[in-house]
């Protein structure tokens, strides 16, 4: 056994005194990058995939709209619903919603409002077209269909 004793004498501890610093660094990174979601989404959101994705330039000029089958089907039925902020709306209410979103912006930026539509893959085109017609009437013509990046298979 004396053979091994010499080897065991080497100190094998990992210094742990800097661990809190490392952890704090990670913590600050996540604290800074975290955006807490202010609305809970009540519709199914399985976004379609596409390749030609564009990024939104300025987040402050974006209004979000979610369309999909409600998660609580026993309460709201199976038909796709339009959700903005925390409520379900009908296509006819879209103009009012756009105007309230525009009111939040500075006057000179109001025509740059982009509507980001997060539409579930399974939703039919009909309801989306109704919303688009209302958006045209409300003069909010910049539209972004939110999608996932499709993996390029090689």
């Amino acid at each position: 056994m004396s053979k091994f004793k010499k080897k065991a004498a080497v100190k094998q501890d990992i210094p742990t005194s800097s661990m809190p610093d490392v952890v704090f660094m990670l913590l600050f990174f996540f604290m800074v990058t975290t955006v807490l979601r202010e609305t809970s989404i009540n519709v199914k959101q399985h976004l379609p995939e596409a390749t030609m994705l564009k990024k939104l330039a300025r987040k402050s000029l974006v209004a979000y709209m979610y369309i999909g089958e409600p998660k609580k089907t026993d309460q709201w039925g199976k038909e796709p619903k339009i959700q903005v902020n925390d409520v379900f709306i009908e296509p006819k209410d879209v103009i009012q919603w756009v105007n309230s979103e525009k009111a939040k912006l500075n006057e000179f930026e109001r025509d740059q409002l982009t509507v980001s539509m997060k539409v579930d893959s399974e939703v039919k085109r009909g309801i989306i077209a109704d919303v688009e017609t209302e958006l045209r009437k409300a003069n909010a013509r910049l539209l972004l269909y939110s999608t996932q990046q499709r993996r390029v298979e090689n």
Binding site: L53, K54, L144, T147
Partner: peptide, 9 residues
Amino acid sequence: NDKGLSILL
């Protein structure tokens, strides 16, 4: 995730 296909109505 703020990416997607943009169009002008």
